[in-house]
Design a protein around this nucleic acid. Structure first.
Lengths: 332, 332
DNA sequence: CCCTTTCGTTGGAACGTTCCAAAAGTATGC
DNA sequence: GCATACTTTTGGAACGTTCCAACGAAAGGG
């Protein structure tokens, strides 16, 4: 760090060639003679030369970088989706710039703004808190894919989601097949994802001819809200709970155990999301697992494709989730 | 997106001024007349103009961006540290570029390389798998701070860590004060962090005159390794376990319960890290909590300071962790 | 031996910004 | 009314790269 960073000129003069030839050699062009290539590579190596991505992106008018906004790093669901996004984008030769909004819509906007200043070529929102207006505005400026939310649909926007209605149905099917009837649903509060899951629950209960037992207690997507909702639900003496997400399900389990009941002997619990946490031995949660990694990969793929052919109409991909039976559900 | 992005020239000609004045106005200089400023802002707004960060960073020779490498997004410890890093850096006016190595040293290197191409001004490694050689090389190229690891010390490098020896001592003190003597330690395997924690355990046992009871079972930092180690440890009939991290502690608890014992009635368990997961009602883990957010903030601060005065000698900050008593530890 | 082709190489322009020196405009003092 | 000072504005250079048109050299064909 004593002197300033070496540039392509430094490499050129050390190798005794022009900067243009260095540029050619470094990008692997075959028009460069073997002799020159070797000298250039050696010079570049010995100087510790690194391409300046800013200058490059200015010259080629492409940043080779995608922006990713993640709603909240603490919720493992999002982190697991991110993994899929990143590894797929890497394969396509894109770098990733990640920001968090920390659940704050205002911060979210300024962070996206900063991404746009970096001339990102595309944007992936792993959930978000933006209004429909803001989202459309952003999507008109840069190719955008939202993961996890399919409520805001715009022609400028691709979406990747799991089928929440079908997923909820799987949960109910499973519990019914174990002999349960008094299955109470703990909703995830007032948000589009939770609504679909509740709807799936109702539909399934109906199909099994158990609509008289159907009962929804309103909760939330956190440990604490799951706990509270479970306490309320227990007064109805259910034999099983279907909870809107895994984290809330963990809260619910705590409430059940504190009430002196045991899971799954007295009450079965099925969650939703399939976070890797649920696979831990001490949690061991039966759940409807979204293919989180795949969700991320699909989002990345959709984005890349959309960039390649900007005219194509927007995709709305829906993948199916599957039941993973673990230790919190059992026959009645 | 129909036409290409507006540049500063477009704004200038719409406002009827020179590009230089636009640049001045946009950076909030007070040498711009009120009239011009208004016209420029209006023009910029109506065109949806955004500064090109690449061009800017080329011109000012500063990227205003820091790079962050995170070992593994799935481990909540790192995500929580990251949060501190990001919010602190934001306050200093830096953007953050985040990459993951996915625990793979080779990938880690290429990802850091890509960060360096973006002319990041500093680098924060939230744990890593680099060799001492590689790390020093990188640190010589760009100001670097490592969080969580203090084993590799170089004059080019700042480090931010918690005091693992003292933390482990807190755990033992707590268990002893509850009347425990047969306290077995489940190590976190062969890594510097785990070594310090085991060492702290031994020291504390000695100080309490319980060295005859001291026993270390080698485990790891994952759920599965914690589970395995606990099974082994149980053959020694301990009344308490001190486990090298929270995740492994959760595995250990599962093993204890499967053995027909109950936590904390039969065996107390204390973990290490203080991940927010441990606060969930169904986990409710007694642990030695590192100030994760603060760790991140301190790393960011150290990095900024180091950039401001590049000559100053390297800092090695160590913060203390504290005991958080929850439901997995009880009197004998 | 000259004309064409091919290969390897080169200088200069361009990308969008900031910064500087200097120009233009406006106010102040005598 | 003119020199002086101060405020506002401007064109051009610079940042490090890529791309293009054009160049010289070597090779091949007649």
């Amino acid at each position: 760090m004593s002197t300033s960073k070496p540039t392509i000129h430094d490499v050129a003069s050390l190798a005794g060639v022009s900067k243009s030839l260095v540029s050619l050699a470094l990008s692997g062009s075959k028009k460069v003679s073997e002799k020159s290539r070797e000298r250039i590579l050696a010079a570049s190596e010995s100087l510790g030369y690194r391409r300046n991505a800013a200058a490059r992106s200015l010259a080629v008018q492409r940043s080779q970088t995608m922006g990713v906004l993640i709603l909240d790093l603490h919720n493992p669901v999002f982190a697991e989706i991110l993994d899929g996004v990143q590894s797929e984008l890497r394969d396509y030769g894109y770098s990733t710039m990640l920001v968090t909004g920390g659940k704050d819509p205002v911060l979210e906007k300024t962070e996206i703004d900063s991404l746009l200043q970096f001339q990102i070529e595309g944007l992936i929102l792993i959930s978000h808190r933006l209004s429909s207006r803001e989202l459309t505005k952003i999507a008109n400026e840069v190719p955008t894919v939202t993961v996890t939310r399919e409520d805001i649909i715009s022609s400028a926007l691709d979406t990747v989601c799991n089928d929440d209605v079908a997923g909820a149905r799987l949960a109910v099917d499973h519990l019914v097949s174990l002999g349960h009837s008094k299955i109470v649903c703990l909703s995830g509060g007032d948000n589009p994802v939770s609504h679909s899951r509740v709807q799936g629950y109702r539909l399934a209960m109906q199909q099994h001819g158990k609509e008289t037992f159907a009962s929804v207690v309103s909760g939330g997507l956190t440990d604490a809200t799951g706990y509270q909702a479970a306490i309320q639900a227990l007064s109805q003496k259910p034999t099983a709970l279907f909870v809107a997400n895994d984290i809330a399900a963990m809260g619910a389990i705590a409430a059940i155990e504190e009430a002196g009941l045991s899971v799954p002997a007295d009450v079965s619990v099925v969650g939703y999301d399939g976070i890797s946490l649920g696979a831990l031995r001490s949690v061991n949660l039966t759940t409807i697992a979204q293919p989180l990694d795949e969700l991320g990969r699909l989002a990345a793929k959709a984005l890349v494709q959309r960039i390649k052919s900007p005219g194509s109409k927007s995709q709305h991909i829906r993948v199916s989730s599957k039941l993973v039976v673990r230790g919190t559900s059992a026959a009645i």
